[in-house]
């Protein structure tokens, strides 16, 4: 089936054809769930909050003016919903912010990571990032959002977002380097 622009589905839903909202859900469920999972750290809660985010988006669809991309708007709803939930539950994270950025973190030969292990490396490395940096990486690298759009989603200032992105990338390199070293040690 031909992939249509988000606005096409939104117009359909607003026109009363609610079924079309399922296209939006299918398209964004993974990223919405990933953000929720990172913030809430529990699959059950993450599914509930991801669902809640879609319902909120559906109910507020009439107020979506299209000044930002629909995805940016949806991620902001998701992020805020999840953050509110953690505050409600007075959840405190054991921050994974203890990753020490190493000197070699400036550069990384990503091609050196064997292709068959890449998915595992990426998953494990992302898991080690704190939730705010994970969200930034997800939005910037996976979703190719601009810094401005990231600011809209997270409420960070542009300079803060840039600094956090820079640190997140260094941390990722550090984590990946450590993982590669460990793997080499295991082999040798």
């Amino acid at each position: 089936m031909e992939q249509k622009d988000d606005n096409y589905y939104i117009e359909k839903v607003l026109g009363g054809e609610t079924n079309y909202f399922s296209y939006v859900v299918e398209k964004y469920q993974d990223i919405v769930f990933s953000i929720a999972l990172k913030v809430l750290r529990n699959r059950e809660d993450a599914e509930e909050m991801a669902q809640e985010s879609f319902i909120k988006a559906y109910k507020s669809l009439g107020s979506f003016r299209g000044s930002a991309k629909f995805s940016t708007w949806l991620y902001r709803i998701t992020y805020n919903t999840c953050i509110s939930e953690t505050r409600k539950k007075k959840q405190h994270f054991t921050s994974t912010d203890d990753v020490q950025i190493s000197d070699e973190a400036e550069e990384m030969n990503l091609d050196g990571i064997p292709e068959e292990n890449r998915a595992r490396y990426i998953k494990e490395a992302l898991e080690k990032l704190p939730e705010d940096e994970y969200t930034l990486v997800l939005l910037y690298y996976f979703e190719e959002k601009s810094v401005d759009e990231i600011c809209t989603v997270t409420g960070l200032s542009a300079s803060n977002a840039k600094v956090k992105l820079f640190r997140a990338r260094k941390k990722l390199y550090t984590i990946l380097n450590e993982m590669l070293k460990d793997e080499l040690h295991t082999i040798l």
């Binding site: 469920q29 993974d30 990223i31 769930f33 990933s34 999972l37 993450a46 599914e47 991801a50 990503l110 990571i113 292709e115 890449r118 998915a119 490396y121 990426i122 998953k123 992302l126 990486v137 997800l138 690298y141 996976f142 190719e144 990338r169 990722l172």
Partner: peptide, 13 residues
């Protein structure tokens, strides 16, 4: 890094 990360998969509900 974009290309590398995109070769991974996101979590699914």
């Amino acid at each position: 890094l974009k290309a590398f990360l995109k070769s991974g998969q996101l979590e699914s509900p």
